[in-house]
């Protein structure tokens, strides 16, 4: 088996320092919607300057390099134990290179491990065996500020008047955006999962964020809800950084999973504007990144 530590280190560097083109494009469009001279426009202009600077200097876009979430899809025959060791080694090296901030804290002692390792869940790695020859590793860095404003609702929700249908989903998601205000570093991107249990629902809400901004939802009703939620969330007027303005969210990504008859969860993972996610494909000894 190949040692992928070096290519994975490059994946981490790229993810932390180089914002994906679709996200940067959405931010550029957002600038044009804000009034000249407004705090909202100033915030977005600063954000874009920072994106360019981080890319040029290979420094983290945001100092909170977040929870490293790895999604590994591997052909048959790969050892996930060995891949985990390589990912952990790459993460520790990335921390030493200051591409990542040491972010892994023991919840009981309060001690920071200093290298972004610690226990079975830091970094978080999801493995799935897939058909074909290519090994694909996707990495998302999700900061704590936006993770803290994520929310999960159990429907029906009488206070919000939200029943167990897409109309109810719309209401609770708008509530989550309002609760978040600017604290999740608006303009955000909403990852929404309908159904599942509490754990699988949150998991799916993050996985939904792997879809590119310009990639439409294959389900027509969900595609319509994504567009409506984006438009209505922006009517809340929270704006970039919560300064007020036209752009509160850049997009919404909705997925659904089966649920128990008794349960109807809606989970919202709020992603900050620094929407750091990159993909690495390893095939026939060749690596490519997107």
């Amino acid at each position: 088996m190949q040692d992928l530590t070096e290519p994975i280190l490059e994946l981490v560097r790229l993810t932390s320092t180089d914002l994906p083109a679709d996200v940067e494009q959405a931010l550029r469009q957002a600038v044009e919607r804000e009034a000249p001279g407004s705090a909202a426009r100033g915030a977005l202009e600063t954000i874009l300057k920072n994106v360019a600077l981080s890319r040029a200097n290979s420094t983290p876009i945001c100092q909170d390099t977040g929870t490293p979430l790895f999604y590994v899809r591997h052909p048959a025959g790969w050892s996930t134990r060995s891949l985990r060791a390589q990912i952990e080694s790459a993460v520790a090296q990335a921390t030493a290179h200051a591409y990542l901030r040491p972010n892994s804290v023991d919840s009981l002692s309060g001690k920071n491990s200093g290298n972004n390792l610690g226990g079975h869940y830091f970094p978080t790695i999801h493995f799935e065996e897939v058909e074909g020859e290519a090994l694909v590793i996707e990495l998302m860095l999700k900061g704590g500020g936006c993770e803290n404003v994520g929310a999960q609702y159990s429907l029906p929700h009488s206070q919000l008047g939200a029943g167990r249908d897409l109309a109810g989903v719309r209401k609770v998601v708008l509530d989550a955006v309002h609760q978040a205000q600017g604290q999740g570093c608006a303009p955000g991107i909403l990852g929404v999962a309908i159904g599942g249990d509490r754990g699988s629902s949150y998991y799916a809400s993050k996985e939904a964020l792997l879809r590119k901004l310009d990639e439409p939802n294959p389900d027509e009703s969900l595609a319509a809800l994504e567009a409506r939620l984006t438009q209505e969330a922006n009517q809340l007027g929270i704006g970039p950084m919560g300064f007020g303005g036209e752009t509160t969210v850049l997009d919404a990504k909705i997925t659904h999973l089966n649920r128990l008859p008794a349960s109807y969860f809606v989970s919202v993972s709020y992603m900050c504007w620094a929407y750091r996610r990159r993909k690495m494909v390893w095939k026939d000894g060749q690596v490519s990144y997107s």
């Binding site: 915030a43 600063t46 954000i47 300057k49 920072n50 600077l53 981080s54 200097n57 420094t59 983290p60 876009i61 945001c62 100092q63 909170d64 900061g143 500020g145 600017g182 570093c185 950084m241 300064f243 900050c272 504007w273 620094a274």
Partner: peptide, 13 residues
Amino acid sequence: LHAIGGAASLIAQ
């Protein structure tokens, strides 16, 4: 005083 969240490389300068 509100700084721009996420503008980390720029602020570091």
